[in-house]
Amino acid sequence: MTDYNFAYLDEQTKRMIRRAILKSLAIPGYQVPFASREMPMPYGWGTGGVQVSAAVMIQEDVFKVIDQGADDTTNAVSIRRFFERTADVETTETTTDATVIQTRHRIPEEPLTADQILVYQVPIPEPLRFLEPSEVETRKMHALEDYGLMHVKLYEDISAHGAIATAYAYPVEVEGRYVMDPSPIPKFDNPKLSMPAIQIFGAGREQRIYALPPYTQVVSLDFEDYPFEATKADHPCGLCGSTDSYLDELIVDDTGGRMFMCSDTDYCGARRAKGHVGAEGTPLQENAV
């Protein structure tokens, strides 16, 4: 595809996004407005992540895309193909081989390194949006560091349910200043948000970019007597037997029988390749798929 520029976006657009990325790294957790472009894929399907990936990508990159932790979900396949066509970059499903990883809803199980960049697709970047629909108002709240509304919401959860009733997109406080939406990752992933890799969050439709530089201090909001808890299904993975990875639940028969398996397909596959076998799994064979 030679009709389009490297990584699709024109250079002027990339410069605009790159400037926004630098400011987002300088002010961790603050949502930098940017003039998001109309992409050849729908808003809500990763246009923010795609624009960020396109702006940071170099020819030597090895690119990985996951959706729900899996490389083979259709939208992940579609985005991977987009960059194969427009940037001619090498792609991979192996987390450790990737230099840029675009994700929707998960952080890989394998700890990321300082040489990697994690790009998140973000639907609603504003953590206060569902408490206050007006952008004018939420911008003021961030400016004044007025997060009372959020604390009230979490407190009301506790009085209604006896626990904080937020299971994903669990809000965090960054470096003691901005409250940030970590995108709709399960709260199981929240403790990983402080990591050696650069993390950049792109919200295309909402025209915002925000970031976490490596080792940024990220704290999940909680109360002393109701501390934050990273939870997952209390099972081992049926395929690889892992007891510490985030699990998907599958309905496997007409009687409603369940099984649990790793949401991170690369992590699960790598374990099985090393000989780990779960209760419902088979030893991994070459070309079994």
Partner: peptide, 19 residues
């Protein structure tokens, strides 16, 4: 080669600002 060279340059600039 602006698309390639600016991408390379930006990665260095971004790494510097991030770290």
């Amino acid at each position: 080669d602006p698309p390639q060279e600016s991408a390379q340059a930006f990665r260095g600039i971004m790494r510097a600002m991030a770290c």
